[in-house]
């Protein structure tokens, strides 16, 4: 499940030993790497030749007793399978996971969402507090409008000229504001300070996406292929995927 680089690499690795179907929620392979990334195109071609069944544009929702529920335009079915390989990608930690407490106000976005909206030229604020460094933070920094002042909290100090201030080693702990975020309280070693901002982007602490009921936590018939790291290269993702599924065909050969 998941036709990003990890899912494609895992499917190809397993195809020599088993019948493999690769299910993808979006209508094309590639995931965050996008459909026309050379590594994606290469793996899609090789999966095709290796007999992997590519099912794109269909969402897997439940994994119950070795049956996977698939739903999408024109496809509504239960697929029987011996094993689920879950390559569902990663996302930044949510406020509850960080944990970040305080006011529930407009202007606090997951890095994934902030990036989509900024790319669409929706102005999210004049003073952005970006928490964390790495993939999503970089995307947000690249899209941040030139008039916006950017403060980075935690993570490594990014080299980007877009960053006006940085607080490495600090963690966001509290959101303040009435209708919209007005301040983000950050903390390091018990020292707290409040940063003025009208937008908070949560891009820290990568977590595996887990959204298939029955495959949220480890069971013997599910393997997760989700490399959680701040910076990822195609090679690292592919190598991790191959290494993770390497032992699987032996285990399921019965």
């Amino acid at each position: 499940m998941g036709a990003g680089l990890a899912g494609l690499a895992a499917a190809l690795e397993l195809a020599a030993h088993a019948e493999v179907e690769l299910v993808e929620r979006l209508p094309a392979a590639g995931g965050s790497w996008q459909f026309d990334h050379p590594a994606v195109r290469d793996l899609v071609g090789r999966c095709d030749r290796a007999g992997v069944r590519l099912t794109m544009g269909v969402t897997a929702l439940r994994w119950i007793e070795r049956r996977l529920l698939l739903i999408g335009p024109g496809t509504r079915a239960w697929r029987e399978a011996d094993h689920l390989v879950f390559a569902g990608g990663t996302r930044p930690a949510t406020p509850a996971e960080l944990p970040l407490f305080g006011a529930r106000v407009a202007g606090v976005f997951a890095g994934t969402v902030a990036h989509h909206l900024m790319e669409a030229h929706i102005a999210l604020g004049r003073h952005l507090a970006v928490c964390g460094s790495g993939y999503w933070a970089d995307l947000v920094l690249a899209e941040a409008p030139s008039h916006a002042r950017v403060t980075v909290v935690g993570g490594d100090v990014p080299a980007s000229p877009r960053v006006a201030a940085a607080w490495p080693g600090y963690a966001p702990v509290e959101v303040r504001g009435r209708d919209r975020v007005e301040q983000l309280v950050i903390e390091r070693d018990g020292h707290a300070r409040a940063i003025d901002c009208d937008c908070v982007v949560l891009a820290a602490d990568q977590r595996p996406i887990r959204n298939v009921d029955g495959a949220i936590t480890a069971t013997p018939d599910v393997t997760y292929v989700q490399l959680c790291a701040d910076t990822l290269t195609p090679d690292a993702v592919v190598d991790h995927a191959i290494a993770t599924v390497a032992g699987l065909h032996g285990r399921n050969s019965t």
Partner: peptide
């Protein structure tokens, strides 16, 4: 966005 009536966009 949010219960207070703020919106997604700002500035």
């Amino acid at each position: 966005m949010g219960p207070g009536g703020g919106s997604v966009g700002c500035g």
